[in-house]
Design a protein around this nucleic acid. Structure first.
Lengths: 70, 70
DNA sequence: ATATAATGTAAAATATATTTTACATTTAGT
DNA sequence: ACTAAATGTAAAATATATTTTACATTATAT
């Protein structure tokens, strides 16, 4: 899996959602803060399940959070 | 990751796309047929990267292929 | 009925995603 | 300047996704 193919707007969405912290987003998605950091930095591609949870936490669609560059 | 939370329309989309075989879809997504089978059956949640590749293979959005039930 | 194609099951090996734990650095508020 | 909060780095451990390999079953065409 090359996560370099996935870009994301997590940081911007966090800011626009009451300046949500990574910790808070992690809580909403039931994952660790480290996971959010890693995904936000594009260290690896998240599972689809987690991608959906992140999108839901922001009240948007998956493709509003993540973009596939191929 | 509980993949029970993700439903998909892969089989239907395969049928509607020239009756594409699992092998062909696997080829388009650069994964093994076994992976397609497992995902189609909901054995596990795919990586977001693969989800995007599958969606692209059908020329639709990720949320047209997968549905998050929570 | 036969042969081939497509789909399905299974398990070990391998690759990747996530967690745990710890510490460091930066940012924000006073 | 000080403190706490937020973010960041890192690596080992753990969990999950995918591959490899093999065989079985079902579907399709003749």
């Amino acid at each position: 899996m090359s996560s370099g193919e996935i870009l994301n707007n997590i940081r911007r969405l966090r800011f626009n959602n009451g300046e949500m912290t990574q910790e808070q987003l992690a809580g909403k998605c039931s994952v660790t803060r480290q996971t959010i950091i890693a995904i936000e930095k594009g260290n690896y591609s998240p599972s689809l399940t987690l991608a959906f949870k992140i999108a839901k936490a922001f009240g948007v669609g998956v493709e509003d959070v993540f973009e596939f560059m191929d």
